[in-house]
Design a protein around this nucleic acid. Sequence first.
DNA 1: CGGTTCACTTAGCATATAATAG
DNA 2: CTATTATATGCTAAGTGAACCG
Length: 787
Amino acid sequence: MGKRKIVLSESDSETDLFRKDTRDYDLDTPLSKSGDLDIPLSKTVTLSHKKLKTVKNEDEVDEETSLSGFTSNTSVSSSPVKRIKKESKSKSKTKTGTEPKFNTKAKTSLKKEVTESKLIKEETPGEQNAEGEVEEDEEEEEEEEYKWWEDNENDGSVQWTTFRHNGVLFPPVYVPLPSHIKLYYDGNPVDLPPAAEEVAGFYAGVIGTDHEQNPIFRKNFFTDFKKVLQENGGTLNGVSIENFSKCDFSRIVDYLQQQKEIKKQLSAQEKKQLRIEKEEFEEPYKFCEVNGRREQVGNFRVEPPDLFRGRGAHPKTGKLKRRIYPEDIVLNLDKDAPIPPVPEGHHWGEIKHDNTVQWLAMWRENISNSFKYVRLAANSSFKGQSDLKKFEKARELKKHINTIRRDYKKNMKNKLMVERQKAVAIYLIDVFALRAGGEKSDDEADTVGCCSLRYEHVTLKPPQTVIFDFLGKDSIRFYQEVEVEKQVFKNLAIFKRLPKKPGDQLFDRLDPSILNKFLQNYMPGLTAKVFRTYNASKTMQDQLDLIPNKGSVAEKLLKYNAANRTVAILCNHQRTISKTHKQTIEKASDRIRELEWQAWRLKKAMVQIDADAVNKSKNKKFLTKVIKTFTKTEQKKIHKLIIDRENDRVQKRYIRENDAKKFENEEELGESVLKEWLQKVEEKKIEYNKEVESDEIEITTKINTVEKIEKQLEKLKLRIETSSIQLKDREENSQVSLGTSKINYIDPRLSVVFCKKYDIPIEKIFTKTLREKFKWAIESVDENWRF
DNA sequence: CGGTTCACTTAGCATATAATAG
DNA sequence: CTATTATATGCTAAGTGAACCG
């Protein structure tokens, strides 16, 4: 038995997509290394061993029920500790020698940024830099830039030597509503102190979303709202607010809506002006100087106050996320760096000089009392370096994966309960790409990963089918009905055995740290999450290998996306189906049906002209196979669709043109014009009706020869084909999110190589920001690179 | 150790912007 | 050219895992 195929069932149509996946996992490839040690003994195991003596029965697995039918193998297995030299990851091309200078473009870059998209095309692509190398990137760089991936010196713990920036950007102060816009309570206007009014406004902002329907959200909001109100001396006009259901936010909602509308109505110029002003204002915060080099800051804006929008059933959702002031902020800079200016009348909470970390600023947030950090952008050297490290680590796992798989298979029959649990857990993480699953407290949403799986999350269906059903990260449902190996099934049964009951931990001897410590034995730095990266990239490599190098760019892209989708499904990256999705799909299929009707009609006309035309046509296949006959009812339906649409269009056009004329002070079109237009549509309708009755197409000058019709048919055929493919693609992607895996899991070098080999412009696969983020990948691989 | 704290990656949704159909 | 739809980006919540601490 070499490869094991896991076929996911297809029973539940709702989540169908996530269970059609078929994957191969090579668990049995012979090991490259023999003579692996047969002694586990990390500290954890030693401890269990001690435990074994005292509470033997608890820790020993009951062989009777669990091991039947399997070749027994009693030896405790483990992995050799493999020491990998930390070698410098990339062969350095000659480094530029001198320390790169700090990019002084900061001042001018604003204008550049703003107009870039337009200007770029006018500039010579590929300028020469000092060394005479040709810069191939579409964004010109006057100054040579730092290519950290060609730089060898990076030891790890020290992140920077100089580190300077301008601090953070605070959200604007609250501007109270106009005095006539108020909250109403029990039908009466309420005068709120500004602080409370602000919170009421936050709630108004949530009306119309799902949060509004969430009782927890409402309760938490109302509690905090009352608190703020009280802290600010209560309402100003003596109204006492006790009951949420008596609160009427509608005027505030309308006002906010109106403000939004006004903003939208601004002319393009005004919008542009505002944008430029905003840019200018933000400019100082956008960049950070790291070791004399200019790098982009990611989230330089402090999070504004709002109601906390927790995902899933978060107990704290709806609570007020308080405003952050400079006093709350800790800044991190180098010792000699100038201290950024603070808003008038304030001071920074603390100034630190910690060069072992990457953050520029941080504050403590009040919802779960954790930290928020201001850090560099995704295209920075900090992020890039850790990204590269992450993928190199995943590639390192290639060398150990066979050993690991062999071991966990073997350990499925280990006598020690912990070892068995480890084996099964690693199996689940490896095969189903589960996350580690750390412990969570009661004031968070109840979500789980591997180690925190509970009794009720796994259902066993003999002989060897397992149904996983739980909420994972972000409360995204993980539902899979799968066949597993017998021994896995048996072990899961053991882990669920009495006295365990719903609510109990499946892996009661495990937590991520135990698992990770065990994994380190195979490879330094190996942790549970590495498996996700590894399997995602490995899957992508395998999928890409299957794509034939032929066809149009569009076709190849479609295949790339299909490969991407496989990975996204593996990682369970979902997105909510948009509210309009069903409608969109319906509309698109109606549209296709209409196109088919047009084709059918043309076909009829063709036959009318020449009875044998179909047989002679080079589109014979299309004409006979694809085009189905339309019944009279169907025809009428389509006619109605077209006529309604036409009428609609005419009405709109009439209104629009008159609006324009009014604006220009011209004479408006009279009703008669509209009537005339509508009449034309009416004529068409009559025409259609006649067509249905007589079952004959009227031959017009436009379509009076077979050749002309063929030409039109050709066009229609193409449109139908592309529309159908598009529709199918969209349908398949409707609940799968491709982005997350592209950004975080698929080694970007795979995509770069794919583009090179298949002659696809990288822009088709990586957006501008992704190209910046993955610059290290784009510039460092040749087409023979493999994951 | 075993829990907590800190720092970092990963995640989906909301909104802004671009592309495309009509 | 406009309205609609698709895509890209911004935002911040929610994970992981190592270090720290008593």
